[in-house]
Nucleic acid binder design. Sequence first.
DNA 1: CACTTATTTAGAACCATTATAAACTGGTTG
DNA 2: CAACCAGTTTATAATGGTTCTAAATAAGTG
Lengths: 132, 132
Amino acid sequence: MKYIDKLRNSGLRPTKQRLQICEVLFNNEKTFHFTINELEQKIKDRIDTKISLATVYNTVHAFEKKGYLKQIPINSNQTYFDTNVTDHHHFYDLKDQKLIDLENSDVGPINIKKKISGKRIKSVEVLVKLED
Amino acid sequence: MKYIDKLRNSGLRPTKQRLQICEVLFNNEKTFHFTINELEQKIKDRIDTKISLATVYNTVHAFEKKGYLKQIPINSNQTYFDTNVTDHHHFYDLKDQKLIDLENSDVGPINIKKKISGKRIKSVEVLVKLED
DNA sequence: CACTTATTTAGAACCATTATAAACTGGTTG
DNA sequence: CAACCAGTTTATAATGGTTCTAAATAAGTG
């Protein structure tokens, strides 16, 4: 199983549940955005056994901490995650409430001129809201 | 009272509560960021009468819809608002969980090259996360 | 003042997320 | 292989920010 090493290498035991969630998250042609609820549904559709909601939360948070998932900062009642962890930005379609990837080449380089002493820039995230 | 016209002009009745909240939000030297809870506390400190939590929510949402407040997209369990409604961006200090304004001149111009047909760009928001 | 409509209010309801504590599992060691 | 321990899963309860509800109150109008 190809995700066993990935998990072991990051100090996570390769449990049945985690491996199944890996399949759903990472064994796809394209990366995608999801909420926990949407992921739960995807898991139900793809896997025959049930995985507890608490485990889905635990796993997603563990994967995020290890850098396998990214949270997308957006004002919504639900938290959005992204399986695309490369540097990139997002459109957010206000009407359809859909996220769309912006490749880095779609956004000119962003130059942050201000510095805060003692702090490093960890990430720069751009959210472009779309309306009709 | 200087906020009466502001409210009337946007179709909001200038009630006692709204005027008091205007005082707390807009009668300051500097703009600021807040959550509903922080605003509630500020109101308690500045005003002698009590304003119901539901009214605070109603008012903040009404003001946001009218463009007197902006929501700041950030992943947090609480929603952050900004009394600075000009175009600008934010640092987010992950350790202290504090927002810091970035003037537009602190961030080079942002050029979004991708277009989505039938959609207009409503806003471009940059969140720069800071770590130690 | 009478009337209509908007607003305020306390409290209940909602719902995503987190905490809990018991059962279970993976990995390791003797 | 058995015994053990730490990590993990699980159902369920608890939490907490936000929204809803329905009744009371206040603002605007004629």
